[in-house]
Design a protein around this nucleic acid. Structure first.
Lengths: 148, 148
DNA sequence: CTAAATGCAAACATTTTGCACGTCG
DNA sequence: CGACGTGCAAAATGTTTGCATTTAG
């Protein structure tokens, strides 16, 4: 299936299937991390044949285990996914509108080195998220207050 | 109920009830963050009358809203809770044994200032977690390899 | 052809909710 | 007494699993 696209799937010992290809293509296109149900609705809206919920979870699980996608939680009680090939970065999450913005890496590496030395803890990955109010919501709030 | 303990509950407009007092006392004693079911089992084992699951969630929810406890996710698909009065800190989570260790604050404040300025994003809170292998598990792994 | 992947239904874990009853202040 | 808090049962949400069937290689 789809002999030219995502050849690396085979390289990872994974069969190329419609679900995997479409999920990977979707992940390539998104700018903010998505959860399983967003992936499902996207495939439902745009693709001819839907992909089963359990299959989506299984695909995400195997891509995660192979290290092709990253997975994290943003205080929502569910997981979000991104392509692991994205450069190291963190997130700004607006508690008002839910928007998620990336911020690029910020010398966490130094901190990791420090921890490894002081604590003898081998750091494999980290997650850093900032929760607050995004510029748009701040602006609207200011306008709302001013208008009274 | 319990006229001397946790008087601040009243100050926050919350009635002093057995559940709230016992949960707060438990949170004071723990050294690593706990989830709802750990709280429930603890109360079940040690206290005469159990506290209903839904009630535990409702108590945690109101304590969280009032800012008396903090809440976060450690890639487990559930929330963990701590007293908010604990000094600012982060966590080292061992992916092998699941142990959670605190690490004290590490100049994230500077980073926050930077973000507020550059991104116009108002930071209210942050979460920083490191995932990896704890010293104990590293040691056991080394021994296991040496023994072969 | 065979191992791997999927669909379906059912189970599971965590968290939330409606409603009647109980209790703090 | 009255608003707030709780217990119980049921539901909502996110995720996983067993098993029969399909499909990539």
């Amino acid at each position: 299936m789809n002999s030219k696209q995502n050849t690396f799937l085979n390289a990872w010992g994974l069969k190329k299937t419609r679900g995997r290809i479409e999920i990977l293509n979707y992940l390539k296109r998104i700018s903010t991390p998505v959860d399983a149900s967003e992936i499902e609705s996207y495939l439902l809206e745009t693709k001819s044949t839907p992909i089963n919920t359990a299959t989506i979870y299984r695909i995400l699980s195997i891509l995660y285990k192979k290290g092709l996608v990253t997975r994290f939680e943003l205080q929502e009680g569910k997981f979000r996914y991104e392509l692991a090939s994205k450069p190291d970065h963190h997130h700004l999450i607006c508690k008002n509108c839910g928007s998620i913005e990336d911020i690029s890496d910020c010398n966490i590496k130094a901190l990791e080195k420090d921890i490894e030395k002081k604590k003898k803890f081998v750091v494999q990955s980290h997650s850093l998220e900032f929760f607050g109010v995004c510029p748009d919501c701040s602006r609207l709030e200011r306008q709302r207050l001013a208008g009274r």
